[in-house]
Nucleic acid binder design. Structure first.
Length: 420
DNA sequence: TCTGGGGTCCTAGGACCC
DNA sequence: TCTGGGGTCCTAGGACCC
């Protein structure tokens, strides 16, 4: 059996952990720049607030209905996620950390007698020790475990645990689940399936396998087999090596001058470099892009990107900043209202496998030491304590985050004090 | 004023090789 | 007068996930 444990309305639940007054109230969490809704509590869902709802168009509705609005606070969510995952790890050592709020637990080699009871234990211990409510679905494959989890949330919210341990229970869930709600079936495939008369997961099982293979590629075929109970999507117990790292963000306000654009890009490049060093990786190629805001019909639209090859694979901020600037020179055009800039590191290789160049003029050892010192300072003194001058100080492009909650678990000033 | 930000995998087609 | 077949690598685009 595989279990899928999923935190209920994770971001909204995180906000509640340290603010119990939010219990029972409708909550929404907004995307970067407070743009649109990316998470909702049950109460907000019940009010009809849709995923992706535009914040500024709903402001009055939120006020009128007492909806509590938060900017996203990934520091807080990441920290609470770690706590949840650590707890889940104590139930099962074959665990895949699938996303910030979900994990697969493979119980096939565990000696538990009563898996349903294990599900209840997970649920009650996570909520009592960490404060985050979870649901548990179990089935013979990952896809069926996902489906069982969704079934638990939709049909037996209070219980929150559903186990597919018989053919009848599997059949029930397959008939209950629409094709669009199958893990691995997105909007395009759902449309295709509907058009061909397959409406539920049970219908899909009646499709000829060759048809699935031909129209939905091997990915669809794997899902098809998983629905039949044949394990086709493996557990990934150690995270796969990253193939690229991307940092890109829309600006809090439009930018039309180059210096500010450079400043924003320098910040994102610095984050990319930091992530590379943390993963002990180097990049051989940067991909840079700038773009305008597609939603502003009054602005001239512009999108350009460029790949910049590095002579030697690197994770040195100064070097990456240098090449990023060269790239930006090539794609920058004056007179444009820019909305977003991004930097992607491609061709990642482990930092101990670099192919050095005979003509390399850099003193890489020294640079490495400097970068380590920089990273350590930023750990000790807090994020961004030490920066490069090119990162600028103006920061008009900064994210708009008007309603961010405190970082209760990661920032000393934000720790709650309790009066006794 | 205001519309998210990361990722992965697969396929088809072109360039190139012998 | 004639235009194979098999293979690899790369890229762009499309699908999906949270």
């Amino acid at each position: 059996m595989i279990a899928l444990v999923d935190c209920n309305n994770f971001y909204a639940s995180c906000e509640r952990v340290f603010q119990p007054r939010l219990e029972g109230k409708p909550i929404v969490i907004l995307s970067n720049n407070d743009g649109c809704v990316i998470a909702r509590s049950d109460e907000a869902k019940a009010l009809g607030v849709k995923m992706g709802a535009i914040a500024f168009m709903n402001r009055e509705f939120f006020e009128a209905n007492g909806v509590q609005v938060f900017s996203s606070n990934y520091t807080l969510y990441g920290s609470l996620s770690n706590r949840v995952m650590r707890k889940l790890g104590s139930f099962c050592n074959n665990i895949e950390y699938y996303s910030i709020d979900e994990a697969f637990l493979d119980f096939s080699t565990h000696p538990y007698q009563n898996l349903e009871q294990v599900g209840f234990d997970i649920k009650s211990q996570v909520v009592s020790e960490i404060g985050i409510p979870v649901s548990v679905g179990m089935g013979p494959t990952k896809t069926l475990a996902k489906m069982a989890n969704r079934f638990a949330k939709k049909t037996k919210k209070q219980i929150g645990v559903h186990l597919l341990d018989s053919a009848d229970k599997i059949a029930e869930v397959l008939a209950f689940t629409e094709v669009a709600d199958i893990w691995g079936v997105g909007p395009q495939y759902a449309k295709l399936l509907q058009k061909n008369g397959f409406h539920t997961a049970a219908d899909l099982l009646n499709a000829p396998e060759e048809w699935v293979r031909k129209n939905m590629s091997v990915v669809g075929q794997r899902t098809f087999n998983e629905l039949k109970g044949i394990r086709s999507i493996a557990m990934e117990e150690s995270p796969a090596a990253k193939k690229n790292i991307c940092v890109a963000r829309g600006f809090g306000q439009l930018i039309n001058n180059k210096a500010e654009l450079q400043g924003a890009l320098a910040n994102y490049v610095s984050i990319v470099a930091e992530k590379l060093r943390k993963g002990m990786l180097c990049t051989k190629q940067l991909h840079l892009f700038v773009e305008t805001n597609q939603h502003r019909a009054q602005d001239e639209q512009y999108y350009r990107s460029i790949d910049v090859a590095l002579p030697v694979a690197s994770n040195d901020s100064t070097e990456l900043l240098h090449y990023a600037n060269l790239g930006l020179d090539r794609i920058f055009r004056p007179g444009i209202n820019y909305h977003k800039v991004g930097c992607m590191a491609l061709d990642l290789i482990p930092e101990n496998q670099i192919q050095f160049s005979m003509f390399d003029a850099q003193n890489r050892l020294r640079k490495n030491t400097m970068m380590k010192a920089l990273d350590n300072l930023n750990i000790d003194l807090g994020k961004n304590s030490v920066q490069f001058a090119s990162q600028g100080s103006g920061k008009n492009w900064h994210l708009r985050q008007e309603k961010c909650s405190p970082c209760y678990t990661t920032r000393l000033q934000d720790i709650l004090t309790i009066q006794i």
